[in-house]
Nucleic acid binder design. Structure first.
Lengths: 245, 245
DNA sequence: GAAATAGTGTCTTTAAGACAGTATGTG
DNA sequence: CACATACTGTCTTAAAGACACTATTTC
């Protein structure tokens, strides 16, 4: 078993945000085979002396101009036929970004010529809405559609990777402080509930949600309020880093 | 970036069982570097045209003589320094086996000379009790001790892998039909509760546990009962494969 | 019948859901 | 003042915990 028999090892990052009532992912159009013309998750090879997380961080910075965001390993995809005519195993990650940050940094850095970081930021990037065809614990591939509503063809097994990311997100939402990652530093309880509903794909009870969040000690009121609302302004909360014991 | 720069890719399998009130893992003693003399998870290289799951199944069969057991990908470990003088990324899996099956198949196949499957079943194997130093969602490395109570030195990052497996097990217990994997086909409610308590590392309320399990429709009475008990025999239940909707 | 554990019935406690009613902003 | 949404208080409902009590086996 000579060393050139080793599979290639890459990382792919599902960069997710919640906006307009739906989950969205940042996708880049591939200009090379395999998967030319299709949209794909940002990805790259794992460097010789680079940890997996670091490789994912590098991809995140280079292709979306994002740093310091929530990033976690998701699952490793290694079916022998997942890439035609090559053996490529990918360690998929997922990142969570609030919509303002992604609209500003991500799309500009990825789409603009040389505006971002280190290199291949030339691919056109889109923020695709995810169509999740299942509830709860089912899982499976998800669809994607461009801002104009057209279906987006995903490269390789990336629809499956996105489905796995959504499933993970849903599963962790109840016991990990994860919803806050999709919101700016200060947010109202309503916005937090909307994010949870977007992730879960179903409506939640307002009273119960409110009580749970306030009792969890994961959030604290800032004393400030919304401004310029056409109605009574809501209290703004912030996420507290206490592990909620 | 020549192809010989690719990291080596392996799978390691945490084979877990619940017995004697504690979680146990099957470990084999390494007779080669790296980690010679220490105990390690059974593992092996990923074949050229082999999926990750298939590689894990192969390891499970070859090193523990186990087939058809619960097996799931856990996490991929790829720190550049996790193996001295080599770059080896491992896709860790975990398997769940009931104690009878592991005592019979696993230890004999792994320890006996050529009694098992395809090859390297020569390493002495032990069933090590895991000492989990944390509760709930904390995570981290776990300790291991041999049947005689002596601490077992684990190779590489395998204490971390085992910790990740225990954490996953605890996390999935409440919403996935996973406790049954650690029991034989027919079991009493008491045994099922003991397994849950062993996994979680804490006592559970008997009445509530009973009600939850019976209401979940995940188990069904077989009509048969325990035999040769020094007290009233309990109903034997079996796991129903319904997804419990 | 004593001992041990299985299993049932019911009360209390806690969290979720429902909903009425009050508070506070804009136009 | 109309309207919209924020927030509060309370009733109902469902699940968990506690515990008394009955059932069935071995010795």
């Amino acid at each position: 078993m000579a060393s050139h028999d080793h599979p290639s090892l890459t990382v792919d990052v599902a960069i997710l945000t919640a906006t307009g009532g739906g989950l969205h992912a940042l996708l880049v159009r591939r200009d090379e085979d395999p998967g030319r013309g299709r949209y794909a998750l940002p990805g790259g090879s794992v460097g010789r002396d680079e940890s997996l997380d670091l490789a994912a961080e590098r991809v995140l910075a280079a292709k979306a101009g994002l740093e310091g965001v929530f990033l976690e390993q998701l699952y490793t995809f290694g079916a022998p036929d997942r890439v035609p005519r090559a053996r490529v195993v990918t360690v998929a990650h997922y990142a969570l970004v609030d919509e303002e940050r992604l609209a500003g940094a991500g799309l500009l850095a990825a789409a603009g010529p040389g505006s971002g970081g280190s290199g291949d930021a030339s691919d056109p990037a889109i923020l695709a809405r995810l169509r999740v065809p299942w509830l709860d614990e089912e899982g499976g591939a998800v669809g994607a559609e461009a801002p104009d509503g057209a279906a987006v063809a995903l490269a390789l097994d990336h629809a499956e990777i996105l489905g796995t990311a959504v499933k993970r997100l849903r599963g962790k939402l109840d016991y990990a402080p994860i919803g806050f990652q999709l919101l700016p530093e200060r947010f109202t309880l309503r916005r937090l509930q909307e994010v949870h509903e977007t992730i879960l794909g179903r409506r939640l009870n307002k009273d119960s949600f409110r009580r749970r969040m306030l009792a969890s000690a994961q959030i604290a009121p800032t004393g400030k309020r919304e401004e310029e609302t056409p109605h009574r302004p809501a209290e703004l909360y912030r996420f507290t880093r206490h592990s909620a014991v």
